[in-house]
Amino acid sequence: MKEYFTIGETARLNNISIQTLRYYDRIGIFKPHYTDQDNGYRYYHVKQFFYLDVI
């Protein structure tokens, strides 16, 4: 199983919108595990999915 997921994959797997993930990042309650400096893509680790359930 892969460990890192794009913002679209994370949104789909957790039944939330991409906009919601971007909003959580902007207000600082759920940051991506890694953001690519070249293209700005956000990547989330599978272990972070638990925190989306809490939020």
Rank of each mutant, 00 (worst) to 15 (best):
K31V: 09
P32W: 09
E9Y: 04
N15A: 09
K47M: 03
I18S: 03
T20N: 14
V54Y: 09
F30V: 14
E9P: 03
Q19C: 03
Y34N: 04
L52I: 13
Y41Q: 07
D36N: 12
F30G: 12
L21A: 01
F49P: 02
D36W: 00
Q37I: 11
I16R: 04
G28H: 12
K31D: 09
L13W: 02
I18Q: 09
Y43V: 00
Y34Q: 01
N15R: 01
Q37F: 10
N15T: 11
Y34C: 02
H33S: 08
L13M: 10
R12S: 13
A11S: 09
I18A: 06
L52G: 01
K47H: 13
P32N: 05
Q48N: 05
Y24S: 06
Y51W: 15
K31C: 12
T20W: 10
Q19Y: 04
H33R: 15
Y41T: 00
N15S: 10
A11E: 08
D53H: 10
T10F: 13
T35R: 15
P32D: 01
S17G: 14
L52D: 02
R22A: 05
D38V: 10
V46K: 06
I29P: 12
F49T: 07
V46N: 05
R22S: 05
N39Y: 04
Y51L: 15
